[in-house]
Structure formats: C-alpha cells, structure tokens
Design a protein around this nucleic acid. Structure first.
Lengths: 124, 124
DNA sequence: TCCCATAGTTCGGAATTTCGGAACTATTGG
DNA sequence: CCAATAGTTCCGAAATTCCGAACTATGGGA
C-alpha cells in the first residue's frame, strides 16, 4: 500500500501541531487514538459524543493529524490502524502535548473532549 | 474609551488559544509581548524578523490574541498597551503556554519565533 | 480652537482553507 | 468474480484569512 506520508520527527513543526489540535473534533479524535491503547480503526472514531462526523471529514482529520506528525497510520487489511507518536513528539517538544490534552480535558464545561487528564510518559 | 472585549478567564477556550498560537506570526507577536516586560505598543511589534506585517493584519492578530484570552489591551493616550495574561492562563491551563512557547523556541531551525525557552511562573 | 500627526480599527474584495456528499479505490471473505 | 467494508479523492459551497485603502480616535502644537 501507499507509503502514507509521515514527516520525520525533526520535520514536525509546532504550528502544524497547534493547527491540528486547534480543532476540537481533531483534538477529540487524537485523544481517542491515545485512549484506545494507541491503536484504533478510523471508523471507531466516527462519532464525537453524539455528533456523527462524515467519513470524508474524518479521513481528512486523520490526514491532518498524520501530516502534523501526531499519529502514525498503517493499513491492516481493509482497515487503518492509527497510533499516537506520543514519545517522539514529547521528546521533541517536551510538555506540549500534555499541556494541550490536559487543557481540553479540564475544559469539560464546553464541548467535551478527552475524558481525564493524562500523565506524561505513560503512552507510546 | 471602548471597553475592548476581553473574555473572563473562565470563558477562555483551549481551542481559541491553540488557534491563536497556531499562526507563527501571532505566536511571535505574543512572545514579543511577553518578552518586553508584558507591555508593548502594537507598532513596536510590526516586524517579525525582517518581514513587515501590514498594520491591518497586525491589528487583527492582536485582536485574535485578545479575544482568545491571551493578552489584555488597554489604550494609553494614542497608543495601545498589551500585556500577556500569563498567570491567569497558566492557572486555568497549567503547562499549556509553557509547552507552546518552548516548542516554538526550540524550533529555531524554521521561522524564528521566541528567543529562548521560558520558565513557568516567571511572568505576569 | 483648529489642524496635523500618530496609532489603530474597519471595510471590502480577492485568495485560501475547510466542509461534506457523491463517486471512486483498495482489500478481504465467500 | 462479486459483494461488502474501510477509506480516499473530487469538487462546489461556505467560511476564513489577508491586506490595501479609507476611516476614527487621541494628543500636541500654533
């Protein structure tokens, strides 16, 4: 299969990460990928709370996350496995993801995102 | 003078902060406001490196930062003083700003942004 | 007081980006 | 080979961003 484009960790830019996670849907998708043991099919992510995300949008969101360097996607048979590049990103930009994910998690008054705060170093 | 709109800290949303700082120009402007002792006229920010930012764009960038809850702007005579709402934002979203500013600072291979990493708690 | 200069905002249209339905491709099981 | 599933691509509509030009607000003279 097509070697889906993944930036090397040195090519990952902070603005791309912020842009990717500035969208609550994408942040929720990313949080979902992390929560689910770092591996998840796309279709399992197709709903944020009760809202359904059209699959073309979902595909696009996943692509944005991938090209920002946040996840690694790999085709397994007919489906796609995604895993967060947590450790790599954490090593390159210490504290960035923790800060962002915790910010969304502590903001449950608004659109719900992640479920609970996350400790660094526990993933990937 | 017009009571420029500033969100209360409880109304500040993570996605607004990420969106605001996902633009390297705005991140540089924000870093500039922090570096300069938290108070700076807009016009002093009108260049990022050697690139000149048109003033309508600058005005808009500052407005985005303000409405995201990142800075407080106040008219002093003919000019505008801006200060980072560092402590407030840090209290609401611990580690978020540090992570972001440090990410940009450690990324000086690309478009230059902030000058050096920042310790938490030293500002505002 | 009137006028000018300075600092910033608003307006408006062009360029860019995002969204999502419909059609398409890829892979597997039968 | 066919049908079903999972995801991607295409493309037009809607939303957003960019920035020059015109405008507003404030303070300092003369």
């Amino acid at each position: 299969m097509r070697p889906l484009f993944h930036p090397t960790i040195e090519d990952v830019r902070p603005e791309a990460i912020l842009h990717a996670l500035a969208d609550p849907d994408r942040a929720a998708i990313f949080a979902g990928i992390m929560r689910s043991g770092c591996v998840e099919a796309c279709s399992a992510l197709s709903a944020i709370g009760d809202r359904v995300i059209p699959k073309s949008s979902l595909s696009n969101h996943v692509k944005v996350l991938r090209e920002a360097g946040l996840i690694r996607s790999e085709r397994h048979g007919v489906e796609m496995r995604n895993q967060a590049r947590w450790a790599e990103v954490e090593a390159r930009f210490p504290g960035l993801l923790v800060g962002i994910i915790n910010a969304y998690a502590s903001d449950l008054g608004g659109r719900p995102q992640a479920r609970e705060p996350i400790e660094p170093g526990s993933r990937d």
